[in-house]
């Protein structure tokens, strides 16, 4: 009974905060409305007794939103807080697509004959998750590693206005490096 009330309460918060993302007139509010929505989802996952996944969802999403907020603020086409704004684009297509997907998923959730649970969940879920990651799913990690390295390299290459040649000279020998902001390690 309590679980049901909490579930519905969190569900309403998650959806309402999600709606707020498109209603509010400030990028900061929109981003953190999304963060609230994710926190509610994380709490729902905790409610499903997946402690680790729920807590890590909250952790990651708050952190990503904190960083995303500054990007949203910086790259907005106009003032990010004091002008009326509209977060939607291509309204008709978007509304059509999202309604369609919602109907599909909701009817799927309601109509599919969900299987009965066989067996019991392991005693320590985090432990089981760790064994999975290091065991059969090791391949996942082996793939994720290079992908993350590539992400770092690609991200920095794309974002950098100045590269090591600007800093260290054409022969990479200039010491200290020439940087807009002096000081730090290897100055």
């Amino acid at each position: 009974m309590v679980a049901a009330i909490v579930f519905w309460g969190l569900a309403v918060v998650a959806v309402a905060a999600g709606v707020a993302v498109f209603v509010v007139d400030s990028m900061a509010r929109a981003t953190y409305a999304l963060a609230v929505s994710f926190i509610a989802v994380g709490a729902l996952i905790i409610l499903l007794q997946q402690s680790y996944l729920g807590v890590i969802t909250i952790l990651m999403m708050v952190m990503e939103m904190a960083v995303m907020a500054v990007y949203m603020v910086m790259f907005m086409g106009m003032n990010p807080a004091l002008m009326p704004m509209d977060m939607t684009h291509g309204k008709k297509t978007a509304i059509g697509a999202s309604t369609g997907v919602f109907v599909l998923l909701a009817s799927g959730a309601l109509l599919i004959p969900w299987p009965e649970r066989r067996g019991v969940p392991p005693e320590d879920l985090t432990n089981a998750l760790g064994l999975e990651i290091m065991g059969e799913k090791m391949l996942v990690m082996a793939v994720v590693g290079p992908v993350m390295v590539a992400t770092i390299v690609a991200g920095v290459v794309l974002a950098a206005g100045r590269t090591r040649y600007d800093r260290l000279g054409d022969d990479l020998r200039r010491r200290p490096a020439d940087d807009p902001q002096p000081g730090g390690i290897g100055r």
């Binding site: 953190y32 402690s51 680790y52 807590v55 909250i58 952790l59 708050v62 985090t126």
Partner: peptide
């Protein structure tokens, strides 16, 4: 909590926001 350490980490990340 079985994930007490992660919980601590989560709360300290909230400070960013």
């Amino acid at each position: 909590l079985d994930v007490g350490v992660v919980w601590f980490n989560t709360v300290d990340v909230m400070v960013w926001a």
